[in-house]
């Protein structure tokens, strides 16, 4: 049922593919039951109501904040908070310098990545709900990659491997003895679980730590 404006791809030159397509073709007249359609409509209505609530919440707050009488008070409070953070060194994060706190993206989807310098190396936090569940035995691996990395002359360090959880979420933390100044690219690869420790080359997400 591919969209017709999908990227062009050559037809599969194998008569068995056509026989398979005919054998497994869905019945186009199938429709969901009225009860299930009603449930989907209710879910959309609930989502619309939540969206409206979220829209109204911040707007009300913005309106309150824009009130002239509150502005001096808010400015003073902001100064106090900034001063407290500076005094406690919290701009460095709880354990050290935040070297990257932003998006990680690629053909597998997108998510957020945070890299913090700690005493023993770097603490890496990844959060995404986009990665596909891989077949049993396959897994994802997070790498720090340096310049001129090639399969024959690798210049990379693995920070660890992971699977999305039962809800399809990958919320994982790794510690890695790496220096992002030397290995500034973070890559997530899909690995086939074939026992070969080298990367598969299938990069599903990446980010660059540009300090």
């Amino acid at each position: 049922m591919g969209d017709h404006d999908a990227p062009f791809d050559e037809p599969i030159d194998d008569p068995l593919a056509e026989s398979l397509r005919r054998s497994l073709e869905p019945d186009p007249t199938l429709v969901p039951s009225a009860e299930r359609v009603a449930a989907v409509r209710r879910a959309a209505e609930r989502r619309a109501a939540e969206h409206d609530r979220n829209q109204n919440g911040p707007d009300s707050l913005r309106n309150a904040v824009s009130s002239r009488s509150l502005r001096p008070l808010i400015a003073a409070a902001a100064l106090i908070v900034v001063g407290m953070f500076a005094a406690l060194g919290l701009d460095r994060g709880p354990d050290g310098d935040v070297e990257y706190d932003g998006d990680i993206a690629g053909p597998g989807g997108d998510g957020t990545l945070r890299v913090v310098e700690i005493g023993i190396g770097r603490l890496v936090d990844l959060d995404t709900s986009d990665l596909a569940i891989l077949p049993t035995g396959e897994y994802y691996e997070l790498w720090f990659v340096g310049p001129d990395d090639t399969p024959d002359a690798p210049n990379r360090i693995s920070a660890g491997t992971f699977h999305p959880d039962a809800d399809g979420r990958s919320q994982v933390s790794f510690t890695a003895a790496v220096n992002p100044e030397l290995l500034p690219t973070v890559e997530i690869t899909a690995e086939p679980g074939d026992g070969d420790p080298r990367p598969s080359g299938v990069v599903v997400m990446s980010a660059t730590i540009d300090r």
């Binding site: 049922m1 969209d3 359609v37 989907v40």
Partner: peptide, 29 residues
């Protein structure tokens, strides 16, 4: 399909019903 998906972004129940019916045979198969 593009128009309906854009309406679905605004959580329009009619748009979601259309998308459900559009996808159903293939997804159910």
């Amino acid at each position: 399909l593009r128009q309906v998906v854009e309406r679905a972004r605004h959580h329009d129940p009619d748009a979601w019903e259309s998308l459900y019916r559009h996808c159903y045979p293939a997804l159910y198969a």
